[in-house]
């Protein structure tokens, strides 16, 4: 109980500091932020912007105002010469694309990594184990954008098996949707597969030496059951933690992969915001990502408890 409160306090603190940091990004801009954000137009536009962003107010006031807007879904605007467009509108379009990409990649990574981890652990030292580990080590050294570029070029352009670029909405055409997501998901998942597999293998090897595994064997259970029902769950805790922490890597990777495959997700949004110098948008997007990331880790923490009854009861 106490522990839960402390966790909650910590979470609140982290969220506070992260949003504070991002909320103040604009004031980090060298020179007059209004000048940087609206280089065109006249002074009255800038005055309006100063008003909107509370640039003349002291920091706490500005933060509270920003936070109030942020939690109510007002993420500021794109400031263009002709129109100002709310950032939130674009986010509602883009976020699902990124989330789907990360989801597919994460699922793909786990679906491949878990069996590989289990089998290599069971056959630790075998040729298969060594081969898989060496391959994984090599894959770890391939940046995901390199893989994306190569896949897009070889499979997409040269072989023409899958679209090298572009996105199809799930609601438009399910088959095409998945076809358009295969290469991006593989590019994003490959590195994670290697990480997860190695982690799971290490933990599995340790678990397989536990007494309760010998006891499970001595019950006469099949090897399969011993591995998957007895050994996997207690071995998956590190994997889970890292999978949660890795969402950060995944987010970063997704941004670049989206740009390479021109998937209209958050990455493309950030890319555009940066190239158009839309700092208000950048600030909101980063805040959004950070909050999402923190929440994912809270969720992982909860899953942790579901997987390990010892933690569950320790928390009361």
């Amino acid at each position: 109980m106490n522990n839960a409160l402390r966790k909650l306090g910590q979470l609140a603190l982290v969220l506070f500091l992260v949003t504070l940091f991002t909320a103040l990004l604009v004031s980090l801009l060298p020179g007059d932020p209004a000048e940087v954000i609206i280089p065109f137009g006249d002074e009255s536009d800038r005055e309006a912007l100063r008003e909107e962003l509370n640039l003349d107010d002291p920091l706490p006031v500005r933060y509270v105002a920003w936070l109030g807007d942020f939690v109510t879904g007002d993420m500021g605007n794109y400031y263009r010469q002709s129109i100002t467009e709310p950032v939130a509108d674009r986010v509602t379009q883009a976020a699902p694309v990124s989330l789907l990409l990360m989801l597919y990649a994460q699922v793909l990574a786990l679906v491949i990594a878990i069996p590989l981890g289990v089998i290599t652990a069971q056959r630790a030292g075998s040729f298969f184990d060594k081969f898989t580990n060496t391959t994984a080590f090599g894959i770890l050294a391939i940046p995901n954008f390199v893989l994306a570029l190569v896949l897009s070029y070889v499979v997409g352009v040269e072989l023409g098996w899958l679209p090298p670029q572009g996105y199809v909405r799930f609601s438009n055409d399910i088959g095409e949707h998945f076809r358009s997501m295969i290469l991006p998901s593989i590019s994003l998942a490959a590195g994670q597969v290697a990480v997860y597999m190695r982690l799971l293998r290490t933990d599995m090897v340790a678990t397989l030496q536990e007494d309760f595994i010998l006891m499970a064997k001595a019950k006469g259970l099949s090897n399969k059951r011993v591995l998957w029902r007895h050994a996997l769950r207690p071995s998956s805790l590190t994997l889970l933690t890292v999978a949660g922490l890795n969402v950060g890597t995944l987010v970063g990777g997704a941004l670049i992969i989206e740009i390479i495959f021109t998937l209209p997700g958050m990455g493309v949004l950030i890319f555009q915001a940066i190239s158009e110098r839309q700092y208000v948008a950048i600030q909101s997007l980063v805040a959004l990502i950070a909050v999402g990331y923190v929440l994912v880790n809270v969720f992982v923490d909860m899953l942790y408890a579901a997987l390990d009854p010892r933690i569950r009861s320790a928390r009361g």
Binding site: D211, F212, L214, K217, A218, G220, R229, H230, P309
Partner: peptide, 24 residues
């Protein structure tokens, strides 16, 4: 062996703290 283990031949281990699966 597997068909004998648990049904004909059984074993009790030294440390009950570690011989039960903690998550089952």
């Amino acid at each position: 062996l597997r068909s004998l283990w648990g049904s004909e031949l059984s074993m009790i281990f030294q440390d009950p703290m570690t011989s039960l699966n903690p998550v089952m």
